[in-house]
Simulated scan of single mutants.
Amino acid sequence: MTHARRHRRISRLKDLLLTVCFLFLLVLIAARLSGQPEETVFSGPFYVIDGDTLAVGPQRLRLSGIDAPEIKQTCLDERNQPWPCGEAARSALSRLMAGQAPECRGDARDRYRRLLVSCVSDGQTVNGRMVASGLALATGAITFRREQSSAETAHRGLWRGTFEHPRVFRDRAGLIDPAQEGEGFWQSIRDLLSLAWL
C-alpha cells in the first residue's frame, strides 16, 4: 500500500469517527430536549442508612453521582492505623441532612427501585459536599470531579491515608450491588445529557 493510499484511508477513518461522535452528541441533545420524567421531591424527615443512602418512610433514596464506603468498611489513616471510614461517612451525611431545609429530588430509579437523588441542605449540594469532605467518591466522568480533586489534594477523609474503593470492598465482601457498579457509566451519560459541561 502506498503512502498516499494509507493517508487517505486514515483520513476517511478520522472523518467516520468524527461523524459518529457528532451523531452521538445529537442523539444525547435530542434525548435531553425530548422531556424528562416527573421529578419526585422529598423534604424529610430523612433517616441516614449509610454514606450514600437515605430513607424517607418506606422509600429508599440513593445519592446520585457518589459512592461512599460501606458501613462496616475500615480505612487506614496517615499513620497506617485503621479507622471506621464507613461509620464516618454515615455520620457526615447525618450532619449534612440535619441542616436547614434539607430536600432531595430525583427522577430516575436504579434496578432496586431506589430513587437516585440530589440533595440540598443549608443551600448547598449534599452529594458534592460528601465528595468534598473526602468521605465519598465521584462516580461520573464529570460531576463532582473538582470536589474530589480538592479533597485528594487537601488529604481530607479517605484521602488522608489509604483505602479500598467501596466497589472493590463490596466485591471482596460479596456485597456486589450491580446497580451501583453500573452507575459510573450511566452517571457519565447523565453528566453529558445535563449539558452542564457545555
Rank of each mutant, 00 (worst) to 15 (best):
R6P: 00
R6Q: 11
R6T: 10
R6G: 09
H7K: 14
H7T: 10
S11W: 12
R12S: 03
R12G: 02
D15V: 15
D15R: 15
D15E: 14
L16T: 10
T19Y: 10
V20W: 11
C21K: 02
L23D: 02
L23I: 15
L25N: 08
L26S: 10
V27H: 02
L28F: 13
I29C: 01
A30F: 11
A30R: 08
A31F: 12
R32N: 09
P37F: 06
S43A: 15
G44D: 01
V48K: 00
V48H: 08
V48S: 04
D50L: 00
T53Q: 02
L54M: 10
A55Q: 12
V56C: 05
P58M: 11
P58H: 06
Q59S: 14
R60V: 08
L61N: 03
L61K: 00
R62K: 02
S64V: 10
I66G: 00
I66T: 02
D67S: 04
A68N: 13
E70F: 00
I71K: 10
Q73A: 04
C75S: 00
L76A: 05
L76Q: 11
L76H: 03
L76G: 00
L76I: 01
N80Q: 12
N80V: 12
N80I: 07
W83G: 02
C85M: 03
C85H: 05
C85L: 06
G86M: 00
G86V: 03
G86I: 02
G86C: 03
E87A: 11
A88G: 11
A89N: 13
L96Q: 03
M97D: 11
Q100W: 08
A101P: 04
P102V: 02
P102R: 09
G106Y: 03
A108P: 06
R109F: 07
R113P: 06
R113L: 01
R114Y: 04
L115M: 14
L116G: 05
V117T: 07
V120Q: 03
D122H: 01
V126Y: 06
N127A: 09
N127G: 06
G128N: 11
R129V: 13
A132R: 04
A132H: 06
G134K: 03
L135M: 07
L135D: 00
A136T: 15
A136G: 13
L137E: 00
A138C: 15
R145Y: 13
E147Y: 02
Q148A: 05
